[in-house]
């Protein structure tokens, strides 16, 4: 990836006595689709609002192209925001909403009309210029909000759970369109969501946050396959999380057995946690198995069955297209690369 555009340095934020950000360090690059992902109250929206300029950090720095901007008011930043509930101006029609920023900059009327038209085309609302924004559907309002922000040609577009208020089908479609728009305009998108699927689908980089701290920064594939700790593993997808010990590089011990793995770089005999994704586990005959147990419950989920297998020490969740009736003694099998070793979390 190219140049660093935004750097957050040791950002903290307190509201009254409550600390909502506890030292955020994050580099955001040009042209990147970065998602801040986490449960509500994790500080992701506050981080976004600090970048936009609506909040001032309690301490720390916000660098934009290397220049500190944390005290700069929002109207002086080359950043635009798409708000959660769109925040379209009800007294202006679609075209005037989109032209709001350009009108302030005293751009020539004919240029404005041209740009508005191009934006409407990009978001698929051609011919909507004179419509009343309050009469548009949620999806259409969201498109106007995106056009209103992008027409100013910002360096960064901030999106605060922009699809949260839409129904599932339109949300899927908008995810796809947003990604397409981002590639088309070629600017940085910083996207806030609590929806892990949304984050994995659209992002170049996912930043998982919890309790005002960054838990992990990585590509969607890294975040999913190599979660760094229990929180990330739990938050992204479903997981079997097992406490264990890293015997040495490429060898891990849990549930009383030693297994091959592909992880290294831990200390010898370091206490760790292991993630086994339900879809990585296979049901096999007990004699071919790495672990054995009894099927406790089988649920049909459409594409696959969800099978709970009770071993001596715990219950494993397995997702497979094979059927196994409850009560049957089965074996569980997995490959070395399916064993994801993570640092053990202290405080959680």
């Amino acid at each position: 990836m190219s140049n660093k555009l935004i750097e957050l340095k040791d950002l903290t934020k307190n509201f009254d006595d409550q600390q909502v950000l506890r030292g955020i360090n994050l580099d955001i690059y040009e042209n990147e689709f970065l998602t801040l992902l986490g449960p509500s109250g994790c500080g992701k929206t506050t981080t976004l609002r600090i970048i936009a300029g609506f909040e001032e950090p309690s301490s720390g720095e916000v660098l934009f192209n290397g220049i500190e901007i944390s005290k700069l008011p929002p109207y002086k930043r080359e950043i635009n925001t798409v708000f959660q509930k769109y925040a379209l101006f009800p007294h202006l029609n679609v075209a005037d909403n989109i032209a709001f920023g350009l009108n302030l900059k005293k751009v020539d009327k004919s240029v404005i009309a041209q740009k508005v038209e191009r934006m409407l085309k990009m978001v698929g609302l051609e011919g909507f210029e004179k419509r009343d924004v309050t009469l548009l559907s949620g999806g259409q309002q969201q498109r106007v909000a995106i056009a209103r922000a992008l027409v100013n040609e910002p360096k960064v577009l901030l999106l605060d759970e922009p699809l949260g208020a839409l129904d599932a089908k339109i949300r899927k479609q908008m995810q796809f369109e947003l990604k397409k728009i981002q590639q088309e305009v070629g600017i940085t998108f910083i996207y806030v969501t609590h929806d892990q699927e949304e984050a994995l689908t659209m992002s170049d980089t996912v930043v998982v946050m919890n309790n005002g701290e960054i838990q992990q920064i990585g590509s969607p594939i890294d975040i999913y396959n190599e979660p760094e700790n229990r929180f990330v593993a739990n938050f992204i997808g479903e997981s079997n999380i097992i406490e264990g010990v890293m015997v040495k590089d490429f060898l891990v011990e849990f549930d009383g057995f030693r297994f091959e793995c592909v992880d290294k770089g831990f200390e010898e005999m370091e206490e760790i946690e292991v993630v086994l994704r339900p879809e990585d586990l296979d049901i096999v005959a007990p004699e071919d198995a790495k672990l054995t147990g009894v099927v406790q419950n089988t649920t049909f989920k459409g594409v696959h069955y969800e099978i709970l297998v009770k071993t001596d020490l715990r219950i494993y969740k397995v997702q497979t297209t094979d059927y196994a009736e409850p009560g049957r003694k089965v074996g569980l099998s997995f490959e070395p690369e399916d064993v994801h070793v993570m640092y053990k979390m202290g405080a959680y």
Partner: peptide, 18 residues
Amino acid sequence: MDKSLIEAAYDLGATPFQ
């Protein structure tokens, strides 16, 4: 009045007076 409208105006480059 929805307070986010005021933030939206700032965001789009309007000074407090504008």
